[in-house]
Design a protein around this nucleic acid. Structure first.
Lengths: 331, 331
DNA sequence: TAAGCAATTGTTACCGGTAACAGTGCGGTA
DNA sequence: TACCGCACTGTTACCGGTAACAATTGCTTA
């Protein structure tokens, strides 16, 4: 009924050779006599032969693919990281198996199992908190692992990122230097990075004898959450003169709300975000933000992973790519 | 040296059974006697057995994975589509093999070959223009294909999306209804959808006896491109009273530039975007935009693909999920 | 002229699950 | 007692490419 997808044997039958010869011809044409080579290549073209990685995957347990687990694909931060990863893997002939786990370690575990079942040659992880089973799977899989985004923990094998605690500390210190006293931290979704930034925020505040206050929203980050949190601040903490937001979405949302209410930024209210996304950097006033090297992180992580897949010894266990404080015009 | 990842045989050896029995036990524990079952499951747990899809992939040429080709991962439109796709595939136990091709048919061809080499069970494509080799590969692969985003072309097998021409026509008509006469279309990167929207724009303009003008930027879409194009308009077409942007990034960027220059929106300049992204909908004034059902498209596409993978006959060849005109406060 | 060698092609086995089929052992029934 | 059937477990073969080795051919060289 439905005709099968052509294999090497299909081609071999048509040219009167064995699949071994065809295999050789497609991989290294020089090793096959000219006449045969031409016939093989033309038949291959004609039947529309598509390479098949399955046997490779089975016999050598190598897939030429790497697994990438990110908490969210709609989060622009990770979209940028992925672009960076691909920039390195694509030229090397490696394919990405992407999975996202919605910030949940349990889902991460499932995603990892799924990715490993395809015999990926290496894995890039985006969080540092893993379930015991996740750790066990990584161990038995025996493949290189690189963790990204955070350099504050001891990595499983290797980490590439920046220091969230230090970045938050620096940004809040900068706000204080600009004369702000009542700075509130706006947190959404309690993932690791949000908590680390809070830690940096607290350190900076306490160092200057100021009282840290954190406002949470359990919702996922969005402009409207930023607006809602700002409203809450105006009601509950009317003396606030600055907000440090866990990301730019919240910061921009809060800024929009200030605009609507005629609150002068930065005159009455300083606003700082995190990651330096396009919106914040394109609007006027330009948003103060911590500029993180997302794409560079992806590139460095992929490069390190590929090196280890290819058996190179790797010296540095943690690569810190730093960050930059953009003071913009909202401090 | 490096110990191998455990297989069914590893477990079988330890409990004194054959791998066949272990295989059965893991898939359907009821079919194995209680004592053996307990031992197998405990050993499997202890050695950290990870399922291996490679043999399946080889012997049944099925991978329980589907290929998804999108032009860009950083484009929020496709991020949303992917979320929709996964909403359906994840519960069905299918894994996504994502690839992006940067709006280039040649890269799409390479990406497709790569994805097909992993024996994906179906493919979701995001564009309608394919290279001849791409078409051939799809044919010889013999797997279900669903094309998304556009319903204006005849699909290879099946399409899910909305009508870009009609959407653009409706939005521009709405702008004209609001009294705009000198409306310019702002296009970036000449992909299919940009061109289709231009077509709808032209139709609306011509129907009202107005002269269509398109401004291109070859750069990839961004806020700053929107700002730059607005500047160009002010210089070259000073009587312009409205702009229809091929997406919200450009529209918001243009809005920011208006703000900077003290141009009243919509008083002096009406602005409309496309896709209804968060920024535009969160800011004040709310951006006029065509709200497209991205996530629903992903879901419907995945559902249709899975149905066909599972051998169901599919009646409708094109599913149009429509769009909504949000007039916002910038017309 | 026979050994020797390079160039080319063929043969076999393997990777790890599982379908299909083949035992094996036990209890129940005629 | 003999036969049947059920519950459980084992055996074999297969998927498609390729490493490792074997075989064949034709030509050169001592």
């Amino acid at each position: 009924m439905k005709k099968k997808r052509p294999t090497l044997q299909t081609i071999a039958d048509q040219v009167g050779a064995t699949k071994m010869t065809v295999s050789r011809c497609l991989r290294d044409p020089e090793t096959v006599s000219e006449g045969l080579r031409e016939r093989i290549l033309s038949v291959a073209e004609q039947v529309g032969y598509i390479p098949n990685r399955a046997p490779d995957l089975l016999s050598r347990a190598t897939s030429h693919s790497i697994g990438v687990l990110v908490p969210s694909l709609t989060n622009q931060v990770f979209a940028d990281v992925i672009v960076g990863i691909e920039k390195r893997t694509e030229p090397a002939g490696y394919h990405l198996m992407l999975s996202h786990y919605g910030y949940s370690p349990a889902v991460e575990e499932r995603s990892l199992a799924s990715v490993l079942s395809y015999n990926v040659d290496g894995v890039i992880l985006s969080d540092h908190h893993h379930t015991p089973r996740t750790l066990r799977m990584l161990e038995t899989a025996g493949i290189p692992v690189v963790e990204i985004m955070d350099t504050h923990h001891k990595p499983l094998q290797q980490a590439v990122g920046y220091d969230n605690v230090a970045a938050a500390f620096d940004m809040v210190s900068e706000m204080i230097r600009h004369g702000r006293q009542q700075i509130i931290y706006l947190a959404v979704r309690l993932d690791e990075r949000t908590l680390q930034r809070e830690q940096g925020y607290r350190q900076a505040m306490e160092q200057h004898g100021l009282t840290p206050v954190t406002l949470h929203s359990s919702q996922r980050s969005s402009y409207s959450v930023g607006a809602a949190l700002l409203e809450q601040i105006l009601n509950d903490y009317p003396h606030t003169d600055g907000i440090f937001c866990t990301n730019d979405d919240v910061a921009v949302g809060a800024y929009f709300e200030c605009q609507r209410r005629g609150i002068n930024v930065p005159g009455q209210m300083a606003i700082a975000g995190f990651h330096g996304h396009d919106v914040g950097q394109a609007m006027t006033p330009k948003l103060a933000s911590v500029i993180t090297p997302r794409q560079a992180i992806g590139e460095a992580a992929a490069q390190a992973l590929l090196a280890r897949i290819q058996g190179e010894a790797v010296a540095d266990h943690t690569v810190d790519l730093g960050y930059r404080i953009e003071t913009g015009a909202t401090l």
